[in-house]
């Protein structure tokens, strides 16, 4: 029963080997989906290419459904799976700052690494900027500490917070994703084509 490494079914020494293998698959599929191109990524904000949105939501839905099935079948103990902690202030403020970075830089960190791997100079500069941003935040941490720790709600899920069934939530989330895919396919036909 999973998760295999935390349960001790696979020895911990394999952790880094698995990290490299999973990373390779992750990088391969992201690059092949077009994530090494900033102009393709940004298309979703201007309506001329929704590839990234489709890949992102399909992946989220696939993994969420998979985890619920794995749990239902007894293949994974979800109580041992790390739930990204909820710091409401940081999640909102950090997300807004990242959004500005997304639309000016044309990459997010993972996609910029794909760009670096195939020789995109803009991705290399982006990655240097990324590390500079992390460095400045770290040096100025005392100023932002309140923001960083604000409104902590614990390792809570959205369904616990609203008192919903996770199964129903994922079902409706999937329907919403399909609706978004349909709407974006209409938008892309109406927006002037951009060649890149």
């Amino acid at each position: 029963m999973g998760p295999l490494i935390p349960q001790g079914i696979i020895p911990g020494q394999w952790n880094n080997v698995i990290a490299v293998l999973i990373g390779m698959a992750f990088g391969f599929i992201m690059e092949g989906s077009g994530f090494s191109s900033s102009r393709k990524i940004v298309g979703l904000f201007y309506g001329y290419d929704f590839t990234v949105l489709k890949v992102f939501f399909t992946a989220t839905v696939t993994a969420a459904i998979g985890l619920l099935y794995f749990s239902y079948l007894g293949w994974i103990d979800l109580s041992m799976v790390h739930i990204h902690p909820t710091y409401v202030t940081g999640a909102i403020v950090g997300g807004v700052v990242m959004g500005v970075g997304f639309v000016t830089g044309g990459f997010c960190p993972g996609t910029s690494f794909c760009g670096v791997a195939i020789g995109k100079i803009d991705a290399i500069i982006y990655t240097l900027g990324l590390m500079a941003g992390i460095f400045v935040f770290s040096e100025a941490f005392s100023v932002f500490e309140k923001l960083y720790d604000g409104n902590y709600l614990g390792e809570i899920t959205i369904t616990e917070f609203f008192g919903l069934s996770p199964y129903l939530f994922v079902f409706f989330f999937t329907l919403a994703a399909i609706a978004i895919f349909f709407i974006t396919s209409i938008i892309v036909k109406r927006v002037e084509e951009v060649n890149y």
Partner: peptide, 14 residues
């Protein structure tokens, strides 16, 4: 690209 990276790096820490 550099400015965008900077913002994303900063925001990702927050």
């Amino acid at each position: 690209a550099g400015i965008g990276g900077f913002f994303f790096g900063f925001g990702s820490q927050i």
